[in-house]
Amino acid sequence: MRASQAFPIVGVGASAGGLEPLQKLLGLMPQEPAMAFVVITHLNPEHVSMLPEILARATWMDVRAARDGDRIARPTKTSATQGSRRKVAAGG
């Protein structure tokens, strides 16, 4: 990656009670964010999470489920994935 293509990736962790602060954080992002986000929360792997849908309602950014092997691209949107013990939301 060339220096002109580089961008920061911000990692944000949240546990019980962290949903509202995540919604507020993503809701405050400008229309052209200068960074991507990876949000990790501790969740039961047996539980189907609504995290992507919930975060999508809080932000103008596109929120989608990330998949194993996805690359984080220059930030234009936010992604969320369901993991075994966590959720990961990545802007890109």
Score class of each variant (00 low, 15 high):
residue 1 M to G: 13
residue 1 M to Q: 06
residue 4 S to E: 13
residue 6 A to L: 09
residue 7 F to Q: 07
residue 8 P to H: 06
residue 12 V to I: 15
residue 13 G to T: 15
residue 13 G to D: 07
residue 13 G to E: 04
residue 18 G to C: 04
residue 19 L to D: 03
residue 21 P to W: 08
residue 21 P to K: 08
residue 24 K to N: 08
residue 24 K to F: 05
residue 25 L to H: 03
residue 25 L to V: 11
residue 26 L to E: 00
residue 27 G to H: 00
residue 27 G to T: 00
residue 27 G to C: 01
residue 28 L to D: 11
residue 29 M to R: 05
residue 32 E to K: 15
residue 33 P to T: 01
residue 35 M to F: 15
residue 38 V to I: 15
residue 41 T to V: 13
residue 42 H to N: 14
residue 42 H to L: 09
residue 46 E to V: 10
residue 47 H to W: 14
residue 48 V to F: 05
residue 50 M to G: 04
residue 51 L to Q: 03
residue 51 L to T: 05
residue 51 L to N: 02
residue 54 I to L: 15
residue 55 L to I: 03
residue 56 A to D: 01
residue 59 T to M: 03
residue 64 R to K: 14
residue 65 A to Q: 13
residue 66 A to E: 02
residue 67 R to N: 12
residue 68 D to Q: 14
residue 68 D to S: 14
residue 69 G to Q: 11
residue 70 D to G: 08
residue 70 D to P: 03
residue 73 A to I: 05
residue 78 T to E: 03
residue 80 A to F: 08
residue 81 T to K: 02
residue 81 T to N: 00
residue 82 Q to R: 11
residue 82 Q to V: 09
residue 82 Q to S: 09
residue 82 Q to T: 07
residue 82 Q to N: 05
residue 83 G to D: 04
residue 86 R to S: 15
residue 87 K to L: 11
residue 87 K to G: 07
residue 88 V to N: 07
residue 88 V to T: 10
residue 90 A to D: 02
residue 90 A to Y: 10
residue 91 G to V: 09
residue 91 G to S: 14
residue 92 G to R: 10
residue 92 G to K: 07
